[in-house]
Amino acid sequence: MPRRVLRRPRAGESVLLPPETVAAIRADLATVADDVVDQIIREVPPYEDAFSGPMGETIRGAVQVALGGFLSLISDRRGPDALAPRASAVDGAYQLGRGEVRSGRTTDALLSAYRIGARVSWQHLSAKAVQQGIDPAQMASFAELVFAYIDELSAASVAGHQDESATEGRIRQRMAERLARHLLVGAPEATVLASAERAEWTPPTTLTAVLVHESQAGSLLQTFKRGTLLTADLPELDGDALLMVPDAHDRARAVLLRAVRGRDALVGPPRPWMQVRESFDRAVRARSLGLTGDTELHLPRLVLTADPRALEDLRAVVLAPLAELRPAAAAKLRETLRAWLLHQGRRDDVAAALFVHPQTIRYRMTQLRELYGDRLEDPATVLALTLALGVEEESG
C-alpha cells in the first residue's frame, strides 16, 4: 500500500486548528506519551523490558517531541521555521529505527509499536479536539493528517532500521573476514580471540575448510551452519572461496558432504577451530592434485605425494633392480610386483587382477626373486616397495 505523504496545509484551509485547541492538546502530551508507552509494553512482547529506567524516559520524550512537531505543523505558524519541528521529529524517528537494530528488535516489532502509538495517540487527540468543539469536517481532515504524519515517522524509522542493518551486516562481514585471516595466518591466540569477540562470533569445537568456486559460495553459505566464515581474499584461493564450517565433525560431516554433492568442492578434515589452517592446507593440496570431494577419501594419495622429491628418491632406490631391463619388461614386472604386494602373494588373486594365467604370475615372480633375492621377504623392503608402487597405482 502506498505510504501517505504529509503536506503542510495551505493558508485558509479549515484543518488548521485554532491556537486554543492546539494549546489544550499540547498540555496533554505527557499523558499521551505515558499511555502510548504503557500500551506498547503490554501488547508488543519485545518491548516488555525496553522502556524501564532511562530508556523509558527517552522514549516518552521522543513521543512528546513527535506529537509536538505535528502540532506545530498544523498550527497557524508561518515563516521559515515552521517545518523545523517536523524535520526534527522525522530525524528522531530515523535514529530510533537505527537504535532498534542495535537493541536487537525487528521492523515487525517497530511497526507494531507505531500502530499502537497511532491508535492511542488518536484516541487522545480526537477526544481533546471534540472537547474543543471541532466540527466533523475538520475532524476528518485532522484524522487524515494525524495518520499521514505517523506513517511518515514509521517510514523514517523503517529506513533507519534498514540502513543500520545493512551497515551492521557489512561491519560483521568485515570483522568475520578479518577473523578468518587471523586464523589462517597463525595469529597469536589472544589476537584471534579478540577478533572473534569483535565479530560477535562464538568459537565452535571444530572448523572444517571447504573450497568451492566463488560463484557458488553465497548459496552454500546459506546452507551451512550459522557462524560459517567466508573469505575469498587469499592468494592461495585462485578464484575459489573458502568457507570454514563450524562443528561439521562426526555425524555432522555427512550433512556437510551432502550439501556440497554435485559441486566442484573440496572438503578438508575437521580440526580444532584454532587449527583450521591444517584443514585448509589439505584442501588446497588436494586441489593441486586435481582431486574433488571429501579429502578423507584421498588420504593414501595425499600421504604418498606429501614430499614428491623424497618419493622420487625412494622409487629410484627400491626399483633399481629393474632399471637395466627393457622398458616394456620392467613395466610388466612392476605391475606384477604391485599386485603381488596388494594381494599378499595370493597367486590366483594376482592373476585375476592382471587378467593373466597363474603360470604367468609364477614366471614373473621367479624373475623378480632373481632380481631382488631375499629382500622380497624383508619387511622394510616390502614397505618401501608398497609406498613406491602405491603412488604409481594412485596416479594411474
Rank of each mutant, 00 (worst) to 15 (best):
A351Y: 04
D91W: 12
D163W: 06
E335S: 11
P269V: 13
G61C: 00
A320H: 04
L304G: 04
L387H: 11
L342I: 14
D35T: 15
R346G: 11
L337C: 08
R369K: 13
G293E: 05
H249G: 10
E152R: 08
L211M: 08
R4E: 10
E197F: 15
D135E: 12
R334V: 04
T21V: 15
E312H: 01
A388D: 01
M274D: 12
L243Q: 00
H161R: 00
P85I: 05
V255K: 12
A352S: 12
E164A: 08
L304A: 02
G61M: 05
V212E: 00
S121M: 13
P188C: 14
L110H: 00
G345D: 14
A159N: 02
A11Q: 01
D264V: 05
A283L: 01
E200I: 15
H124L: 14
E152K: 07
Y363H: 15
F224N: 07
R119I: 13
W273N: 04
V210S: 00
V15E: 05
A137F: 11
A62Y: 04
P188M: 14
T208V: 01
Q131K: 15
L289V: 06
E370G: 13
P269L: 14
L337M: 09
E296R: 05
R375L: 10
A187Q: 10
D250W: 06
I361K: 05
G290T: 06
L242G: 00
A137N: 12
A84I: 08
S14T: 10
E152D: 07
F280I: 02
G61W: 02
R263G: 03
Q95T: 11
G61K: 08
L125N: 08
R170V: 14
A140Q: 13
A89I: 07
L389I: 09
V255G: 12
Q359V: 15
T231K: 00
E57R: 14
A241V: 06
H161W: 06
L311W: 05
A118C: 10
L207F: 09
P270E: 04
A388I: 01
M274V: 11
R346Q: 14
V185L: 10
P80E: 04
